[in-house]
Simulated scan of single mutants.
Amino acid sequence: MTTLSSTALTGVNAAQTQLNVSAHNIANVNTPRFKRQEVTLIAQTQGGVQTSVESADMTGSALASDVVTQLQAKHAFLANLAVFKTHDRVAGALLDQSA
């Protein structure tokens, strides 16, 4: 069984991969014959997510798509960070002997 923290960590890592790939795509938007990269998220049976990065089939940019991906990745990162903070707060409350 996968722990809550390790599941959230896979989400943080997936969001970071999405940010890196979209930044790479945006940085190369004016590069001739550039093939942008795309991230595929794959749900794991035990919980969490895995990423796969592949080159797009066609050359050219998709600037709007990459900007939206950055925003989605930012929100996914923040959501998984909230899981870590909540888990830490709950664990602290369980271990607090003074309450």
Rank of each mutant, 00 (worst) to 15 (best):
A91L: 10
D88N: 11
E54T: 00
F77E: 03
Q70V: 08
R33K: 14
K85C: 03
F77K: 05
A82P: 00
F84K: 02
S55Y: 04
G47T: 10
H87G: 13
L81I: 06
V83D: 03
T31Q: 13
G60L: 11
V21K: 06
K35W: 04
T69F: 02
N25Q: 05
T10G: 13
H24N: 15
V67A: 09
V39I: 00
T31A: 13
A93W: 04
S98N: 11
F84Y: 08
H75I: 04
G48C: 07
F34A: 10
S6Q: 14
R33N: 15
F84W: 03
A14D: 03
A73N: 14
Q16P: 00
M58A: 12
K35T: 04
T51G: 05
G48N: 11
S52N: 12
L81V: 09
S98C: 01
E38H: 02
T51D: 03
A91V: 07
T69K: 14
K85Q: 15
G60R: 12
V53P: 03
A93T: 12
T2Y: 15
L94H: 02
V49N: 08
Q50G: 08
L19N: 14
R89T: 12
V12P: 01
A64C: 00
V67N: 06
N25L: 04
L78T: 15
F34I: 09
A56H: 01
H75S: 12
S22D: 10
Q46F: 05
D96L: 00
H75R: 15
S65I: 02
F84P: 00
E54R: 06
L78Y: 08
Q16K: 06
D88W: 09
Q97W: 00
